[in-house]
Every structure is written in C-alpha cells, then in structure tokens.
Design a binder for these strands. Structure first.
Length: 213
DNA sequence: AACTCGGGGCA
DNA sequence: TGCCCAGAGTT
C-alpha cells in the first residue's frame, strides 16, 4: 500500500480545516436532509441564508406539511430552482410521516427513493447524520479528485469508488467535507488559488497552468 | 453514460 | 451573456 502521499494530502487538508463539520446549518437528521435537498445546484452560502428562518417555522416533517408548499417556497425563493425543491421537500416530508414514522431512514435505498434525493445527497446524510463511511461526490470533490490524481474518474460514481478504496479509514468520515471545502475555497473551477493551495505538491496540473491568463 | 432541467448570483 | 453552484431524474 503506497498510499503515504494520500495520508500526507489529507493531513494537509485537515490542518487547513481543523474543525470539520458540515458547512450546512442543521440541528437534526431531518434538517440536514432538507438542507441537502436545498443545496442541489445552489451555493452553501445561499442555503445557510434561508435554512435558519425555514427551520424556525418547520423543523420536522409534520410542521413542514403544515407550512405548505407556498409557505415553503416563500422561505427558499432566493435559492433558485425553488419550485422543484419545494415540491420535493413537501412530498418527501409526507413520505417520512407515512412510511418512516416521521424519521429519516438510515439506508441508501430508502434515502435515494425520496424525491429530490440522489446518490450524492444520500451519501451526505448517511455520513454526517449516521456516521457511515460514505463519500459524497459533488462537482467540487469530482474536480479536486481529478486535478490531484487522488481518485481520477470520468463519472462521479467512478470517483466515489476510488475514494472509498484509497482513502485511509481514519480520514473517510471527513474526506468529502475537506475535499468540498478545498474545492469551494481554493481549488475553484475557474480561477483556483494555487499560491495558497496546501496540497499543490500533489497537483497534476502543475501549479497555475489552468488559471485564467 | 449522456442529456436535460432549472433559476439566482456573479463576473 | 456565460459560467457556476455541496445534483437529480430521465433517456
């Protein structure tokens, strides 16, 4: 197992973010689930802007159903894609009440069967809410994994599979969070901040070569 | 595996 | 305008 450089890479990422915790605002598995559904194709900043107000009105499935689709839409309007998200969260809340005693299920199959919840969101809930060693691959993780050569792959599923294989168990619980933060704040899609990158030693792109001229 | 959808935000 | 955002659903 010549994965010593992977340990060094994650150690560097951990040092850059000593207190790993979800960037999303939530107090319960249900709030996390809602925040994750809202986060699809929206920024974490935007989600954190609306969730405190939303959860003050509805922090469980029953109160969400009571809030209703119009009330929900009003709370999340600034996110974009609010029509689908409001519909999905309401439908999902009803399913939790009817089929899961109002609780958030802790299996991949159950989570992915909920409207608005795909593989990435299910992985986040399993990891953050239930402590399962999953890795959620979003656009950030996908980009960083390919740029560094940590887990190159043409599809998110391929990257996820490689990460599960190569990331040491001690880092697995927080791997996706660190990779996401790095992709969000340093290894951005367009103009990465290579000068301040703590893992540039392992970058396949060789410094700033993909930076806008 | 590739395509489509969806809307605010920001350069 | 064009590209991006802690993707999902369909073909």
């Amino acid at each position: 197992m010549e994965n010593y450089w992977i340990i060094a890479l994650f150690s560097a990422l951990r040092e850059a973010n000593p207190q790993p915790k979800s960037a999303l605002f939530f107090h319960s598995p249900y709030e996390l689930l809602v925040a994750v559904v809202l986060s699809a194709q929206s920024t974490d900043v935007g989600v954190n802007r609306v969730t405190p107000g939303l959860f003050a009105l509805a922090s469980d499935p029953a109160s969400m159903v009571r809030l209703g689709e119009d009330g929900l839409r009003e709370q999340i309007r600034s996110l974009g894609l609010y029509n689908n998200k409001a519909k999905n969260i309401l439908a999902l809340s009803r399913i939790l009440l009817e089929e899961y005693h109002g609780q958030v299920p802790d299996t991949r199959e159950a989570l992915e069967s909920l409207p608005g919840v795909g593989r990435k969101s299910a992985n986040v809930v399993l990891n953050v809410a239930f402590g399962h060693p999953t890795v959620a691959v979003d656009t950030h993780v996908f980009r960083v994994a390919n740029r560094t050569g940590l887990a190159p792959g043409k599809t998110p599923e391929a990257v996820e599979k490689k990460l599960l294989q190569c990331v040491p168990e001690e880092f697995l619980l927080h791997a996706h969070h660190w990779l996401i933060l790095h992709g969000r704040h340093v290894c951005m899609a367009r103009k990465p901040n290579c000068e301040n990158c703590c893992i540039r030693t392992w970058c396949l792109m060789g410094g700033n070569q993909f930076k806008d001229k």
